[in-house]
Design a protein around this nucleic acid. Sequence first.
DNA 1: AGGTTGACGGTTG
DNA 2: GCAACCGCCAACC
Length: 105
Amino acid sequence: QIYAVVTLIPTGHVASYGQIADLAGLPGRARLAGKALKDSAGLDLPWHRVVRADGTLAFPAGSEKAREQREKLLSEGVTVNNMRADIKRYGWQPDLYTMLHKISS
DNA sequence: AGGTTGACGGTTG
DNA sequence: GCAACCGCCAACC
């Protein structure tokens, strides 16, 4: 379920672990979403579009994965300042979020 | 069985 | 805005 929701994130946009878990029918289990993505290594998913609720990248600053994620987001037009994506502009808009919530239920 | 550990998130100072 | 806490829960020691 979690992987399915991740594929729904439009190119050039980002979503939080909490939102992913929520839409996957697992409210309040953001950590599980993170665990699922960690285990998803190898699968073809837009994992780089998943960030923390405040927009910061989940990988330790300076790490190889963090650099890779930042690069992928920038290439899609998502501004990333100091390892933090601009959630205000590129995050899921409220209307789209509620719409997806309705569909998934 | 009990303690630790996270690709997290909301609250508080 | 930031950092320290605390709640969370499944997987591992």
